[in-house]
Design a protein around this nucleic acid. Sequence first.
RNA 1: GCGGACGUGGCGGAACUGGUAGACGCACCGGCUUUAGGUGCCGGCGCCGAGAGGCGUGGGGGUUCGAGUCCCUCCGUCCGCACCA
Length: 1006
Amino acid sequence: MQPQRVDILDAVADGASLARKRYPCRPEANHNSARKPGFYFTCWPFYNGAPTAAAVSVPEREAKWQQRWDAARLFEAEPDPGHEKYFVTFPYPYVNGYPHLGHGFTLLRAEMMARYQRMRGRNVLWPFAFHCTGTPIAAAAQRVAEREPGQLRALEQMGITGALAESLAEPQAWFEHFPERFQQDLQSLGLAVDWRRSFITTDQNPAYDAFIRWQFNRLREGDYLRKGSFPVVWCPERETVVGDHDRISGEGETPQEYCLLKFRGDASMLVAATLRPETVFGQTNLWVDGSGTYARARVDGEEWICSQQMPAKLRLQGHEVEELGTIAGRELIGQRFAAPGVDRELMVLPADFCDAAIGSGIVTSVPSDAPDDWQGLADLQDSAALCEQWGLNHKYIKEIEPLAIIDSGEFGTVPAPALCQQMGVRDQHDRTRLEKAKQQLYLHSFQHGTMLDSVGMGCAGLPVDAAREKVCAALIASGDAARYYELTGPARSRWLTDCTVKIVEDQWFLKYDDETWTARTREALGAMTLFPRKARAQFEHVLGWLRDWACAREQGLGTRLPWDEKWVIESLSDSTIYMAYYTVAHHVNSLPAAKLGEELFEALFGDGDPNAVPGINAKQVAEWRAEFEYWYPYDLRVSGKDLIQNHLSFSLFNHTAVFSREKWPRGFAVNGWVLVDGEKMSKSRGNFYTIRQLIDRYGADATRLTLCNSGEGLDDPNWEASFADTAGRKLERWLRFVAANAGSGRDELHPSDDWFAAMLSQAAHDARCACDRMRFRTAMRRLFFELPRHYRWYLRRCGTPRRDLLHDYLSTVTRGLAPIVPHLSEEAWGLLGGDGFASEASYPDGEPAPATLLRGEALVQRTHADIEAILKVARIESPQAITLLVAPDWKWQAVGLAAGLADERGRVDMQPLMKAAMAALPAAARKEAAAFLKRWVMQEIPALGPGWAARYAEQLDEEVVLEQASNFLAATFGCEVAVAPAGDATGGAAGKARQAAPLRPAIFVK
RNA sequence: GCGGACGUGGCGGAACUGGUAGACGCACCGGCUUUAGGUGCCGGCGCCGAGAGGCGUGGGGGUUCGAGUCCCUCCGUCCGCACCA
């Protein structure tokens, strides 16, 4: 679970060789050098000679709060009926390494949500567990046992040597070491997890094992499982399935289904694999490799002629095979065989593009639609000598003609010859052109082709893709063909052997393809909250696209299928509803095996009777059941976006199968993958960081702040080292600020108090809304970067802040940051005299600031900026006096008229406006009003934007506002600042006065 | 190839339902504090241009009074394409 494509898997599970393969140019770096405990903190306790508030080092402080939370059992969740719950989960990580930056980002999102919801008053359950199911740990342990150098080097890179490394030859040692270290590291990061509920998977944990068995019995009862066969990539050497990670080359190659056509002869039959069975109607001959040697084999009672590699492959694909000997390709040439699907006998001809070692070594020829076939035929028809060489009748060969079977639109009904000519194919050895022609034609006829009326088997008029399936199915049914698999390309296992395809029989599948089940799951999805909302499209697509999932393996660690013990349940299938297990994990984890029967889990999670559970009294079972009922379903599951197409969708499917509607999941949150300074993280790039390294270097809070800052949404988050470098300093500065200001301030009122109160309230409101949408980065920036700027302006305006506002400000930021940097917040909370833990305080909230409240301060800011601009343009260094001339009432009246006439885009027609103005305005102002309104409509409105009218709907007493700010402005510009009505202006100011507009006083500088 | 997401300054990234693009942070440049700094505070900072002004959200086209935002197309990046965690 929780794959990290760049994680330890690179080195541990896959071997260092694979990591090097991906990034061949980068040297390996040893990151233990970054780990110098304490070095970064040596400069921290003192700044400018002043002690920090805490007067302890950051690691000490963080450890202190972690211990206090622990001692207070703050995060140990207990049901509390009547108290609203919130249940957050993170897909348990696969524990073959230490937690790293890649885990950190996603993990922190769950963590921040858990802490946020707690502060919103919810009873939060935030548990954690460890995944051990599958092959990687087993394989890695095996490799340690075999002392494989790559594996040992990988361990060494993690700092694992000596006795510990030796011990990892046993999988059990992995289960013990890594979960423990995971927990330690995450505790050092300050995670608010209820660790009592932790567990590991597989039969190493009997309780979990029993739970998974119960789950699968339920699935089987509900008919969600089926049995079938399944093609897998196979290493014949090791006799094992080979996943992508187990390959040296050929990553991404998968089994591909072919239709294996049978051509009946007197004693034996030729077999030819094709991807285009619908073209059997156009067959004219067969191709073999004249210089090759073929195998004769008895396959399922029939005598087949095929390539020499094929009998072994057929055996792996479930056929009875007895090899009988060989036959030279040359001997086949000129013979005739009855073709499948058509009532014709075809002659075997030689072709150089046909290789006895590829596929069956025999190819059916459809010259109308296959460029290779056409060119092979053309080459023979053009050369009497060639025919003679193979003992063929040239005259007969020349009579072979392509048969039109498919209408390929603009390519015509006999496209291959035309295309070969058009592309200038010289002969059958002109591979580049032929490949190109083939690609082009196959794709085109697959998408646009229609079967002609001349074809049989009820395919006339069908689109090519439909005909393909129909023909293949019919031929198999009549015994004229068989299914056959080949890989899409060559793949080589880590054991240096070419892979092939094996059919696994009796494979168990989860029927994710089932329509009814999918519809139910769609319904579940429809009711879910998704973060971000954009992820829904992908989920919806995946539900339709998922096919039946082979849910059991013959190898690896895990839980055995209860009714078929040769099978081990695979890792994506034992991790779908286990979140329910968390609700009772601390109770059942330690139960003896005898008490872990079906009855227990049926009583806990299903319809079972608590009285029917052997060995546990009914009251106890009922209490546990009540805990499940209280906590379930989970409210949120947070993961990387790559799990949308498997784990998260599987989880949803299995919930709808096992649980009733009210227990279906409520929310998923998905995010991108962490980059490090814009680059993918990987060991081999030398930018791989474990959580431990980051904590040692930056401290938990600075690490968390940097992670929080690295991104939101589906885009890839980006860990910025430069941010991390300064994060600790920023946090310490805040703490010092709190220490220096807690409890201080004035008690008298100041005009700008209301403004700051409104800004504070607005910021709290914004942060709360952002957190509700899991936009913690936005919340953090709002409170930690933007709000302080407003505070600074406030300080400039009033000198000393009002006591209660200052306290609100400190408290708001402290609590608002608590989900992100909890240790620092606890410390600050203490300085502020807060009750209990900051972690349990209420998250700040507020109201959007009323526009009217902001207008006054906006006027001062605007005026301040205008004065600055004027001084700059006029090159005045030290003004003697500044006079602010406030617009007369009639201008407000005039603008109000314009606002009333504005349409929804804010535009105003001049004619009606003038008319209204002339009627309404005082007679004395009319002349100037015309000019003013003209300027207003032509110049101001376009600059103010569409919503301008609202800001002028109500008149502001500018004289009062500016008068109150005059001391501030005077102090700022070092001269006297007077405020006067524009109408009172005399002397030089009188000329300026005319420019005064509402919310834009005229400024006269002397 | 298919499905989904995305592409904005030197960099990370803002911009809610189309409405003055570049918030905020980093880097950088000034100024002031400072014995000196690694700290703090104030100011500047998309591009071209002396200026007025012009140009700017991957390229091209379209819808609209108005497009980073909607539509088409091309280029590029990320995730997934399965039995693997």
